[in-house]
Amino acid sequence: MTLSDIAFWLFSAGAVWTAWRVFRTDSMVRASFALMLSFFCVAAILLLLSAPYLGIATIFMMAVEMMVMALFMVMFMMNPAGLNPMMMVHQHKVSIGAGVAAFAGLGAAALLTDLPHHAVAAGKPVIRDLGTELLGGSMLIFETAGITLLATMVATVVLSSRSGRFGAADEGSRPPGLEPGGKPAGRAPERDSDHSHHAEHGG
């Protein structure tokens, strides 16, 4: 048992435990930061696996992503701090079954397969390799990812903007019922001032 083995098992336990906490904590903000910690543990494992760039880039990316995640939690959830206990789940038993089945299946595959054993050489210039691969042989793939990200930006703006070609996105918006098919919860839909203006003209 070398030092890196001990570190690996510690980080593995950390990654799995924080991942489990994500769905068990009442506070949504804590959930997003628990997910961030899970990613950090995986990033530390990547560092142990001699992938220095990928490891630190994961920390960098996940810090930003989970920050945004927490922001949306505070924005959309009714109880982001988890001051009241809450459990918002559906098809719970099926989901547990699917999760366990996925773990069992993938675990069995990992245990039963004859895996290749060819570790990366100690002095290999992995960061330089990655750079020349990204902007050399696989440039087309890398650029495709770039174009996809651009398309994502356009799609994001289109989806999330309030104003649209066929009127405001929240026109006639109605909250869901307190019970299925029941009266809408929360505030009633606001009447649009433009709309009433048109109605006056028509009538």
Binding site: F60, A63, V64, M67
Partner: peptide, 12 residues
């Protein structure tokens, strides 16, 4: 990159 990660974590 490590410094960049520190910057991102400051926001958090």
């Amino acid at each position: 990159v490590l410094w960049g990660a520190c910057e991102a974590l400051v926001v958090v």
